[in-house]
Amino acid sequence: MISYAKGIVKSILSARKGVTEIEVEIGRENFKAINYDFLTGQVAVGDSVLLNTTAQDLKLGSGGYHFVVSVNCGEGFVAKNAPGHIMKLRYTPLQFAVLSAEEEDSPYHSIFNNFSGLGRKPVIIGELHSMVAPAVFGVKRNRPKLKVSYIMTDGGALPLSFSKTVKYLKENNLIDGTVTYGQAFGGDIESVNIYTALISAFEILHSDVAVVAMGPGITGTGTEYGFSGIEQGPIIDAVNNLGGLPIFIPRISFADKRKRHCGISHHSITVLNKVAMSSANIVVPKFSGNKFDCIQKQIDENTLNQKHKIIYVDELEKLTQDLLSFDFKLSTMGRGIDKDAEFFITAAAAGYYASSI
Results as ranks from 00 to 15, higher is better:
301 E>M: 05
30 N>C: 07
33 A>D: 02
126 G>C: 10
160 L>W: 03
355 S>M: 02
154 D>S: 11
140 K>G: 10
67 F>D: 05
102 E>C: 05
128 L>E: 06
288 S>H: 09
47 D>Q: 09
101 A>M: 03
69 V>H: 00
11 S>T: 12
109 H>A: 13
301 E>D: 12
37 D>F: 01
202 F>V: 05
283 V>F: 00
217 G>D: 08
120 R>E: 11
201 A>S: 15
327 D>W: 00
261 H>W: 05
193 N>H: 05
106 S>W: 02
281 N>R: 14
63 G>P: 11
335 R>N: 12
96 F>E: 09
246 P>D: 04
113 N>I: 00
272 L>K: 06
297 K>V: 00
13 L>W: 01
21 E>C: 03
80 K>V: 14
296 Q>A: 05
228 S>V: 07
324 L>H: 07
325 S>V: 07
14 S>K: 15
54 T>S: 15
178 T>S: 15
41 G>K: 10
119 G>R: 06
120 R>K: 15
158 L>G: 07
192 V>T: 11
159 P>R: 09
332 T>N: 15
79 A>H: 10
139 V>A: 05
202 F>K: 08
47 D>C: 10
308 H>D: 02
194 I>A: 12
243 G>I: 06
260 R>D: 11
290 N>V: 10
17 K>D: 14
251 R>I: 08
75 E>Q: 14
245 L>W: 00
104 E>D: 13
30 N>M: 09
230 I>A: 15
71 V>K: 11
53 T>W: 01
98 V>M: 07
238 A>S: 14
208 D>C: 05
79 A>Y: 09
140 K>D: 04
